[in-house]
Design a protein around this nucleic acid. Structure first.
Lengths: 130, 130
DNA sequence: CTTGCACCTGACGCCGACGTCAGGTTTTAG
DNA sequence: CTAAAACCTGACGTCGGCGTCAGGTGCAAG
């Protein structure tokens, strides 16, 4: 296939594919006219690349993951890499939940205070666990 | 407090604090010499900012979150915002888990193939839920 | 008073993941 | 055969979150 088709099938831009090649994440052959030729696997590979990026992995990790995968490399390092990244994401989620909870608390508190203005009285701020 | 102290207490760089101010996330007064003066709350606020950033929120979201919080605004929009972002992170984690599982499968497969060369035969790949 | 650190503003640098424009070639449809 | 589409290679632009350098000021101590 040519680049446009791959792009369409994988749902990414042509530019992105060239970029992946530049970054050494995706390879191809060339025809006589110098145009890129991809095998069907390319689509899947691009999808994997996208998933990795989308998971927030930096490109060097993506490259490592792919090269390990290419080598068929049964490497504990790879597992370590992925695990570390997953842990990072889990921390992110924790932070986000935390922030949300704080804000949620803020909100409900403000809301209740607004109510309190007309009925008076108050309790200590109650935590709003979601 | 002056900027250096806030930076130290919050564990961020002075530059970052000035940047947050530039982005309208953090405010302060000035003394006669033109130096920034922060209240103790600033430290906490900076920590919140950091958590939000660390959760991967783009700065406009951070700004919105903070402004809602400042307004004491009990806004469903805010909850929506946070929820959306949390969902995004959850998708990221799903992607990452997915990628990891794929790679894990690759690895165990390659590993098993390696083993198979000498002993042959094996069970189906077992999933490594973490 | 002088030293010296903390602080100030302004501005350029950087990395990542492409978008986009320019200017030329190849392939394809009619 | 020709026009249009798809492709090619540079190369510069962008945005976010600061780092860092330059050149000048404020503040406390000896």
């Amino acid at each position: 296939m040519r680049i446009g088709e791959v792009a369409a099938k994988a749902g990414v831009s042509v530019r992105a594919l060239r970029y992946y090649e530049e970054r050494d994440l995706l390879h191809c052959t060339r025809n006589l006219g110098g145009q890129r030729q991809y095998t069907a696997d390319a689509v899947e590979r691009v999808c994997l690349i996208r998933r990795l990026y989308s998971a927030g992995l930096p490109s060097r990790i993506v490259r490592e993951v792919l090269s390990f995968a290419d080598a068929g490399g049964a490497s504990p390092e790879l597992v370590g890499l992925l695990t570390a990244e997953r842990d990072r994401l889990e921390r992110q989620m924790t932070d986000l939940r935390d922030a949300r909870d704080r804000l949620h608390a803020c909100i409900t508190e403000a809301h209740r205070d607004g109510e309190a203005e007309r009925s008076s009285g108050d309790g200590s701020p109650r935590d709003g666990r979601t």
